[in-house]
Design a protein around this nucleic acid. Structure first.
Lengths: 362, 362
DNA sequence: TTGTATGCGTTATCAG
DNA sequence: CTGATAACGCATACAA
C-alpha cells in the first residue's frame, strides 16, 4: 500500500477561485489579504483554499513583487562557533519579523563568496548579511551596495564601503585585557593573530582588517597608557592552522627576551597554542599567561581554564538582522548601529610573571 | 562622487535579444545553451549579454523549469560542530556538481523544521537534505517523500520512511568502545544520552531514534558478549543541558552501586558531564572512566584528554550530497548508501576501575 | 536554425 | 467591492 512517489499537480489560485466561485484576482486578494474583499467572499475563498490544501507558489509571488521575504547570510566558516551563534541571533530576529533566512558557507574562500553573493542575489533575497572573507577583494560587495540592495556586514568593517556593520567594539575589551596583564606585572605582552592568510599578496597590513586592527589598537593604547613601549616583534600574524601557529609561538618563545604573556586573536589559535605549549612543556600560567578572544564553550574546561574576552555574539547577530530589517523598511539611511561591548572573563590562565630568568635566583 | 544607492532596472533577455538583433527565444537558447543556435548568433548574444551585464532571473527560470539548481539543507543546530563539518562535505560535493546549497537552521525546533521544509520547497530546491529534529513528528518529511522530491536524511534514520540516510554505523564503534572498557576491567558501564527531550510526550523510547538506538545496541551487544548483565538503571536519557545532565550524572553517582565508567552520547553532554564531575570533585579516570561520541576539537585539550568515538563527519556530508545528486539523476531508486564506519580514539580518560568501595581496604 | 506565441502562478491595473 | 486582463522574466511547442 506504500504510495510510490508521484507528484500531484500543484493547486493554484485559479483552482481556489473556481471552487469558491469568484474571480482569480479576488481570490488572490483574499489569500494575500490585501486590497479590499468582502468578509463573506473572503470566508468562502479561505475555506476553498483550506479544502484544496492550497500553497502559494512563492517563486511566482516573488517574481512580480520583487521581494522574496528572505534574508541571505554569507559566512566564511560555519564550523566556527562564533558564526553559529550569530546565525541563531539572525534567524531568531528575522523569523520574528516574518522573514526566512538562508545561509551559504564559503569555507573562507573568496571566490566562493563571490559566487554566494551571485546566487543569493539571483534568488532575489531582500537583504544580505555577510561576514567578508577578505578585506581586500570586496568588489562584489561594492556592487551589492551600489545595486541598492540592503547589505549589512557581520563582524567586520570594510574601509570605503559605507554600509552598516554589526560588530563588537573590541578595542576597549582588548584594552581591559591588556591592563589586566599589566596589573599582574607583565611588561612583555605578545599578540598573535591569523591575519594575512588571504594569500592575496598583502603582507600583514592590519589596518585592512578592522577586527584585528581594533584588537591591536586597544592593546597598544593600554601599553601606552602605562608607558610600556611597544615591541613590534611581539605582534605576530599568519597564525593560521597548527603548523603556522607552532612557528609563531616557537619564534616568540625562543627569543632572547620572550614574552611573559600572550593574547591570541581567536579560539582556534588558542587551541593550537595550547597544543604547542603542551608539546614544549610550557606551563600556563606559571611560565606564560594566556588570554584569548571569544568565550568558546571549552574555555573553562581546559587546563588551566582560560581567561577570555567574551563577545555578545548572539546579540551581534540580532543587531545585524535588526539593521537589515530597518534598511528594508526605510530604504537607505546609513544607520550604523552602536557597536556592542565585549567583556573580560578572568580565569586561571593569568598570573604574575615569573622572576626574570636573567636574574639568577636559583 | 559616492554613488547613492539607486537600483537600476534589471536587464532581461529581451534587452539582450534586441541588442543582439535576434529573437527573444534565440537569445534565451544561446544564454541557457540548450536547443540549437548557430555559433555566429551565439557569439553575438553572449557578447551583448556581457556588455549589458545580463543576469538571468533565477526565479523566473525556476518557475517554469521547476528546478532551481539548488540543494536545501536543514539542520537542527548549526552551532554543533558535527553539522558544521557535514555541511562542508555537502557544500563541497554539491558545488563540484554545479549545485548551490542553502541552509536553514531550526534550533532543534520541530515547528521551525516544518517551516523550513515549506520554505525550501517553495523555493523549489531540487533536493532536500535534512537532519530531523524529532523522530516522532515526521509527517512533513513523509509529505516531501510522497511529493516525489529527492530527500536524504542526515545522521538519522526514520522508521517507516523509505528514504536514503547518510550516517555512520555507530553500533560497531559503540561495541568497540564498550569492549575497551570491559578489557580494562569495568563491569558497571553507564550510558547517557539527551534523547527524549522532544517534549512530545514520549518517554524514552530509544528505538524511535536510530542514532541513539544504534549506540545502545552496540553497547548492549558488547556487554552480552562478555556475559555482563545489562542494568537498565545505568541507561539514562534526558541529559539535555547542564541542569538535566547534572541530575542524571548525580543520580548515577549517588547510587549504592555507581558505574565505574561512562559513555556519553555527544560532545555537549561530555562538556556538561565534565563540569559536573569537576563540581563534585570526581577525578577522571581515577574515579570514573569516560568515553564520548564525536571527536570534537577540544577533546584532546581537556584534562584529561578524552577517549572518543570519532565519526567521519565530513564524509557523511559528502555521502548525503552524493546520494541526493544520484536521486536527482535517476529519479527514484532507494539507493541507500553504505553506512560509514566510526573509530575509537583512545586517550587518557580511560583507566581500570578503582577497587570497589564496598571492600573496605582503606 | 530562428522567430512567434503561449504558459508558469502571482500580483497589479483599471474598468465595471 | 469585484473581475477581466496585463505584466513579471523566462522556457518551450510549434511554425517558418
Amino acid at each position: 500500500m506504500a504510495v510510490p512517489p508521484a507528484r500531484r499537480r500543484e493547486v493554484t489560485v485559479a483552482d481556489v477561485a473556481k471552487k469558491a466561485g469568484v474571480g482569480k484576482a479576488t481570490a488572490s486578494r483574499a489569500l494575500g489579504n490585501y486590497g479590499a474583499v468582502s468578509d463573506a467572499v473572503r470566508e468562502r475563498v479561505l475555506a476553498a483554499a483550506e479544502e484544496l490544501d492550497y500553497r502559494p507558489n512563492e517563486l511566482a509571488r516573488s517574481m512580480n513583487t520583487g521581494k522574496s521575504n528572505t534574508i541571505g547570510v554569507i559566512v566564511g566558516d560555519i564550523e566556527n562557533g562564533y558564526f553559529g551563534l550569530a546565525m541563531r541571533g539572525i534567524s531568531d530576529t528575522a523569523k520574528a519579523a516574518g522573514y526566512d533566512v538562508i545561509l551559504i558557507n564559503t569555507s573562507e574562500n573568496t571566490d566562493a563568496e563571490i559566487d554566494a553573493v551571485r546566487v543569493l542575489l539571483d534568488k532575489r533575497v531582500d537583504a544580505l548579511i555577510v561576514a567578508p572573507a577578505s578585506s581586500y577583494v570586496t568588489q562584489h560587495l561594492h556592487d551589492v551596495y551600489e545595486s541598492g540592495r540592503p547589505l549589512v556586514l557581520l563582524d567586520r568593517r570594510i574601509d570605503g564601503l559605507p554600509v552598516a556593520s554589526a560588530l563588537v567594539d573590541l578595542a576597549p575589551a582588548a584594552h581591559a585585557a591588556t591592563t589586566l596583564l599589566l596589573d599582574e606585572g607583565h611588561r612583555r605582552i605578545a599578540f598573535v593573530s591569523a591575519l594575512g592568510t588571504d594569500g592575496d599578496g598583502f603582507e600583514a597590513l592590519p589596518l585592512g582588517n578592522s577586527s584585528v586592527a581594533d584588537r591591536l589598537d586597544g592593546i597598544i593604547a593600554a601599553l601606552g597608557a602605562r608607558g610600556v613601549s611597544v615591541d613590534p616583534a611581539l605582534i605576530r600574524f599568519h597564525a593560521h592552522g597548527l603548523e603556522a601557529t607552532r612557528d609563531v609561538v616557537t619564534g616568540l618563545l625562543d627569543r632572547a627576551d620572550p614574552p611573559t604573556a600572550l593574547i591570541v586573536s581567536d579560539s582556534l589559535i588558542a587551541m593550537n597554542t595550547l597544543l604547542v605549549l603542551r608539546e614544549r612543556g610550557v606551563r600556563v600560567p606559571d611560565d606564560l599567561s594566556l588570554i584569548s578572544f571569544d568565550d568558546f564553550e571549552w574555555a573553562a574546561l581546559v587546563d588551566p581554564p582560560l581567561t577570555v574576552i567574551a563577545q555578545p555574539i548572539y546579540e551581534v547577530g540580532v543587531q545585524a538582522a535588526t539593521t537589515a530589517l530597518r534598511l528594508l523598511d526605510v530604504g537607505a539611511g546609513t544607520a550604523t548601529p552602536q557597536p556592542l561591548a565585549a567583556q573580560v572573563i578572568r580565569r586561571a590562565s593569568v598570573a604574575p610573571p615569573r622572576a626574570l630568568p636573567s636574574s639568577s635566583a636559583s
